[in-house]
Design a protein around this nucleic acid. Structure first.
Lengths: 214, 214
DNA sequence: GATCATACATACCGGTTGGTATGCTGGTCA
DNA sequence: TGACCAGCATACCAACCGGTATGTATGATC
C-alpha cells in the first residue's frame, strides 16, 4: 500500500465512520482498525484527530463540489437545476441499497457540534457556507427565470434551504426511513415551498442529472 | 438537600450540559460536579448514564408539553397559534441574553444521534414524534380556518416543519447567530412558506403568548 | 556498500471514561 | 435502645481515549 493510498484510506474511513455517528464518538483507534492502518501510520500522515477531520472535510467537499457543479450546470434550465439538486440531496442523504440514513457528515454539519476544537468549528462553518452559496446561485437563477412567486429575498431563501437540508438527516435518522419515496417527496415539496416555486411547476420537471435508484 | 431535589438537580443539569453539546461528550463526572452531587448519589438515583438521559428527556418533555399546550391553546386563533409556535421555537433555540445558540437537546433530537444505545434512540424518537404531533394539530387548524393556499397534505407539512426545526439549531450553531432578528424572521418565513400560509397573513399577527425579548 | 529520509509498526503513556464496592450518617420504627 | 434502611460520600476499577517514543523495513541517493 502506497503512502498516498494510506492517506486516502484514512480520509475515506474517517468520513464513513463519522458519517454513521459523529466526531466525538469515533475514536482514532477505530478509524485505524477500519482502515487497516496502525496508529504510527495515522500520526505519520496527520498531526492529530482534528487535523484528520479537517483534511477529510476538505476531501469530502472536493468531491461534492464536482458533483454540485454538474448538478447546477448552466447548461441545465433553472427548473432542471432545482430538480437535480433535490435528487442530489436525496441520494446523498439516503442509501437506497441498505435503506438506511447516511446523514452527510459535513453538509449537515451541525450534527457534529459540541466539540471544543475551534479548528473543527471553522471547518464545519466553511462547509456549511459553501452549501449556502450553491443554494443562493440556484435561487437567483430561479428568480431570473421568473419561476418564483411573490417577492423573494434570495439570501434568506438560500439560508432557509440550508437550514432545512441540515435537519433532514437528523430527522430521518431519529425517525427511521420507512419509505424512500416519501423522503424524496418530502425533500421536493420542502424545496418547492421554501423557494416559493410557482405551483404550476411542482413535480413538472423530470430530473436530467444521473438516475434515481429509488 | 432532599432526595427529590437531588434527583431534580441531576435531571436539570444533564439537560443543561447536553443542551450545550451532546450526549457523547458530556460525562457523568461533569454532570455530578455541575450538579453538586457525588457519583454515589448519581448511581443511587439512576441505573446508568443512559437511564438518566431518558429520564431527563421525559422530564424535559413534561415542561415542553405544558408550554406547547399554552402556545397552541384552542382559545387562540389558528394564526395566533402559528405565531406563538414560531416565537416559542425562537425562544427555545436562541438565548437572547448571551446571543448564543442553545439548540434544544431533544426537540431537535437528531443532534444527539450516533450513539449505539437503543434506549436512547427510542427516547429521541418518541420526543421527535411528539413534536410532529403538535405541528400536525397546528396545520390542521390552519387548514380548517382556510388560511392555507393550495391543497395541503397535513401529515407531510407537519413533517416538513419538524425537519426544518431539527436543522435550525445545527445550522445556527455552526454559522453563529449574528442577528437575532434575522433568526426570528428566518423561522417565521420558513413556517409561512412550509405550511403554505396565504401571503395576506404573513407577519400580520402579533404574538399573544408571552413576550419576545429580542 | 554506506547514508539517509520516508513510511510505517509496536509498545506504551497519562488522563478520562462509565461504573462499582464499601463506608458512613441521619431518620424511622419496633 | 438497637435494628434497619434510604441517601448519600469516598475510593477505586478496568477499559478506553488521544497522543508519543522508539524501533524497523524499504527504497532512493551518492
Amino acid at each position: 500500500m502506497s503512502a498516498e493510498e494510506t492517506r486516502h484510506r484514512l480520509l475515506e474511513t474517517a468520513l464513513e465512520l463519522i458519517w454513521q455517528s459523529n466526531y466525538n464518538s469515533v475514536g482514532v483507534n477505530e478509524i485505524c482498525k477500519q482502515a487497516g492502518v496502525t496508529k504510527g501510520g495515522f500520526y505519520h500522515h496527520f498531526e492529530s484527530k482534528a487535523h484528520l477531520f479537517c483534511a477529510a472535510s476538505e476531501h469530502y467537499w472536493d468531491n461534492i463540489k464536482r458533483e454540485l457543479d454538474t448538478v447546477l450546470s448552466p447548461v441545465n434550465t433553472p427548473l432542471e437545476q432545482l430538480e437535480n439538486l433535490i435528487l442530489f440531496i436525496f441520494r446523498n442523504k439516503f442509501n437506497a441499497e441498505s435503506a438506511c440514513v447516511r446523514g452527510s457528515p459535513f453538509f449537515s454539519a451541525g450534527l457534529q457540534t459540541g466539540c471544543e476544537e475551534p479548528m473543527i468549528n471553522d471547518s464545519l462553518q466553511k462547509m456549511s457556507q459553501n452549501g449556502v452559496k450553491y443554494n443562493l446561485a440556484l435561487v437567483r437563477s430561479l428568480m431570473a427565470g421568473g419561476y418564483l412567486e411573490g417577492e423573494v429575498e434570495a439570501e434568506r431563501v438560500a439560508r432557509l434551504l440550508s437550514q432545512y437540508v441540515q435537519g433532514l438527516a437528523g430527522f430521518a435518522r431519529v425517525n427511521g426511513c420507512p419509505c424512500l419515496e416519501t423522503s424524496r417527496k418530502d425533500i421536493a415539496e420542502a424545496f418547492y415551498r421554501l423557494t416559493g416555486l410557482k405551483r404550476e411547476y411542482w413535480f413538472a420537471t423530470p430530473p436530467t442529472w444521473g438516475t434515481c435508484k429509488a
